[in-house]
Computed example of a mutant assay.
Amino acid sequence: MHLCCSNNITGTTLNPHNRTLTPGGSSGGEGASVGFKCAPLGIGTDIGGSIRCPAAFCGGYGFRPTAMRNPMAGIQVACIGQETIHGVVGPMGSSSIEDLELFQKAVLDQEPWDDETSLMPVPWRTVTPTRDMTVAIMWDDGCVRPHPPITRALRMAKEKLQAAGIKVVDWEPYKHQRGWEIISALYYPDGAALQHQMLRESGEPARPLTEWAFSYSRPTPLTHSEAWVLQHSRDEYRDEYQALLKRRGVDFILSPANPATAAVMGESHYWNYTAIWNMTDMPAAVFPSGLTVDPELDALTAQDKKYVPRNAVDEREWNKYQSPERYESAPIALQIAGRHFKDEETLAAAKLVEEIINGNGMSSKL
């Protein structure tokens, strides 16, 4: 439950592009592997961004499918049976969106719902990408401002998508702070009691970021009535977000995957740019923009230096960007999210958008 990759058994994994940065987590080992191109394809799990952040931090590709689409049998976690927020299994790749589609097709062609009856019995469909779509750019989630390199990549994406004939609009985020309040309360319905129990039994200390993750859980378990209220709020929020997409005529939302290109080791504290799509249960993919952090292009401007953070969390995350050199060489990723259960359409759109933005694999400086 932290977006870093360190444990008491195998130690710490580093980012393949900059060893002062984390590869993300909790699927950070796989993120580093695809980032190094050690493996063409890997598997991760995601309950708040643990596929997408490692893929984004390490310059790879990652996909979070709609919950209850991919099989979960055999997964070992310290929250078996937790129903408040479903984690998912999904693919991570080093080369292309097509790799992620291949994984989805190979898995779902086996009809796993015949064995795992909680899954939706929906085969994988082949969807042809189309430019007849509306992509909304979420420049900021209204809570935490992204760092300058992220904004530069989004500006490049907008310019290239419009030049390619894609309809691009701005997305005004819908109550993302409210979404975080709901999902963070639902992550640990037992007050993290099972995790604490397992740590006591093993005798190992909690890692610092694990302790930090525990800190936003309630000190006592949710009562049944409290859980019901939060789950009802979860479902209402999902419906409201879906209705807003339909009302605004938006097919996909292009956004950052994280406020930073990759977190400095030990500083992975904010993940609502990914967790919000777990909250809404929308499929989401990340892919490299082809850009990397450039000390010259990504220096703080005079306007940046005058920025007044909106809250303490925004201030904490903005102050981490002390200089672009701190993140030098980190790949800049983007994230695209689609409507609920539109997994195939989301990957098709991600493939087209990635090809338009960075089809030749060459970095662009804008």
Rank of each mutant, 00 (worst) to 15 (best):
D239W: 15
T223L: 12
T126P: 02
I43T: 12
F63E: 00
Q110F: 09
Q197I: 09
T66M: 04
L3I: 15
S255R: 04
I183V: 11
N278T: 02
P54Q: 06
W212K: 13
G28K: 10
H17F: 04
A136Y: 11
I47D: 05
P129F: 05
I357F: 00
S363K: 15
T261V: 13
G44W: 07
D343N: 11
R19G: 00
Q162I: 00
P208Y: 05
E226K: 06
K351S: 00
A337P: 10
D298H: 02
R339L: 13
V144A: 03
K158T: 06
G48A: 14
R19N: 12
I182E: 10
E240Y: 11
D170F: 04
L154N: 01
K158I: 00
T126G: 04
A206M: 15
A350T: 00
D170T: 12
M68N: 12
P54D: 03
D251M: 06
V89N: 07
K365G: 03
P205Y: 02
P16M: 05
G165M: 04
T130D: 07
E344P: 13
S96A: 06
W318L: 02
A330I: 04
F63P: 01
R155Q: 07
P146S: 00
Q177P: 03
L199M: 10
E236D: 14
P54W: 08
I75A: 10
D343W: 09
G290H: 02
V107Q: 09
D314G: 10
F214G: 03
G81H: 14
Q335R: 03
P40T: 10
L230W: 13
E211L: 12
G24I: 01
A349R: 03
A32K: 04
E30D: 10
S6M: 15
S329G: 09
G28L: 10
T220L: 13
L230C: 10
E204P: 09
V229T: 15
G11Q: 09
L161K: 04
D99K: 06
V144Y: 07
Q82Y: 13
C79L: 11
A284C: 08
S50G: 08
P324W: 07
A337M: 12
A67S: 15
K246G: 08
M138K: 01
N70C: 13
V127C: 01
M282C: 15
C53L: 13
A275D: 08
P256R: 02
R200C: 09
L222R: 09
D235F: 14
C53K: 14
S33W: 11
L21H: 08
C53Y: 14
T220N: 12
K305G: 07
S96R: 00
D46E: 13
T274E: 08
V264Q: 11
T130F: 04
A157P: 01
P295L: 02
I357L: 00
R248E: 06
Y61F: 14
I80F: 14
C79A: 15
M72V: 14
I137P: 03
H340G: 02
Y216K: 12
T220A: 14
Y327P: 11
R64I: 05
G60M: 01
P112V: 11
A193T: 07
